[in-house]
């Protein structure tokens, strides 16, 4: 038993070293467009994001996370042609790198972000997000990120887990023009399991599972992430921002019956634009490990579906999500 554990630990260690090496190599793929990271204070909170054509999301994304207390944003632009790059370069608290390399070959951007985390994230709290995600957590309106990270530091906690909560509009997806139109969500149809490595969570469910993966729920998207980590240069994201190495970082939940402090990523993916984006994605095949299997999902999205049902819940704020049991304040009174 002990030998098996040791062997497993060594295997994961080698895996982590491979990932770190990939991230280190990935620096060649990145061209700095504007680098304002010089002179960032040691305690700065960073937000890292890899994107392509997200102009519709960016203003809200920046506003929200600035309000939350992010000190500096590090973006990797993967060939946007909708003005995202110029918009980002004009922001005073943003640094941008660009790359034309394949998103898929860079482990869905994680190699690029891995390099930036290694270079700038060491010793800092780093928030790794997609452009259509907004982090919220209990009390976020009165306790910005510095309060949260101080509390986590205080308890020796290195990472915060968060559930991706898919938000959708009232009617057809094409009727949603801005992230603010996405007001509905599924409150209680999530499934939780433990998975490797390190008994990480595996959460699935929500509107995508019921609307697009009812025949093959195993393939439904993973909804758990570990977006906020007190980074160390030897850490590596394993599978998008869902799991990390070393494995202990994935234990973001309590297993003794109590509740751990957790957040939610408000996921504003289902805008009208996704209908066209899905058509493009069907051709680019840059997302998902198995593009052929994802095709059915992309086609369903192209059909401009209605995700809202009579059982949908309208989003009113963090207290609601705590009461519904989607996130928890843990022992943070």
């Amino acid at each position: 038993m002990r030998t098996a554990q040791l062997r497993q630990a060594l295997r994961l260690r080698r895996k982590r070293q491979r990932l770190l090496w990939r991230a280190f190599r990935a620096r060649h793929a990145l061209t700095p467009r504007i680098d304002r990271t010089r002179g960032l204070p040691r305690g700065a909170i960073l937000c890292l994001c890899c994107l392509r054509n997200e102009m519709a999301q960016l203003p809200l994304f920046l506003d929200h996370h600035r309000r939350l207390g992010v000190d500096h944003f590090l973006f990797v632009d993967n060939g946007s042609d909708d003005g995202s790059l110029a918009f980002l370069a004009a922001q005073p608290d943003v640094s941008v790198w660009s790359t034309a390399a394949s998103y898929r070959d860079a482990r869905f951007g994680m190699d690029w972000l891995g390099w930036l985390l290694m270079r700038h994230g060491h010793g800092r709290w780093c928030l790794t997000l997609d452009a259509d995600e907004r982090l919220i957590y209990p009390f976020w309106t009165t306790r910005p990120l510095p309060a949260l990270t101080a509390w986590l530091d205080h308890g020796g906690q290195e990472a915060l887990g968060a559930l991706m909560l898919d938000l959708y509009p009232q009617g057809r997806l094409s009727e949603a023009g801005a992230p603010e139109d996405l007001l509905w969500f599924d409150a209680g149809n999530y499934t939780l399991r433990q998975q490797a490595p390190g008994q990480a969570l595996w959460i699935q469910g929500g509107p995508r599972a019921r609307a697009f993966f009812a025949d093959a729920p195993r393939r439904a998207p993973t909804l758990n992430k570990v977006p906020l980590v007190r980074w160390h240069r030897r850490y590596a994201y394993l599978n998008a921002a869902h799991t990390l190495l070393p494995p202990r970082l994935n234990r973001t939940y309590a297993s003794a019956g109590g509740e751990a402090l957790t957040g939610v990523l408000l996921h504003g993916k289902f805008l009208g634009a996704i209908v066209e984006k899905s058509a493009e994605e069907l051709v680019r095949r840059q997302h998902f490990g198995d593009p052929a299997r994802a095709a059915a999902y992309q086609r369903a999205l192209m059909g401009d579906p209605v995700l809202k049902t009579p059982q949908s819940t309208r989003y009113t704020g963090w207290r609601q999500l705590v009461a519904l049991g989607l996130m928890s304040r843990g022992g943070w009174p």
């Binding site: 309590a254 019956g257 109590g258 509740e259 996130m327 928890s328």
Partner: peptide, 15 residues
Amino acid sequence: QRLRGRAGLIMQGRL
């Protein structure tokens, strides 16, 4: 809540 949690709730912070 940290130690005992809400009984019968299975969620990302309580498993």
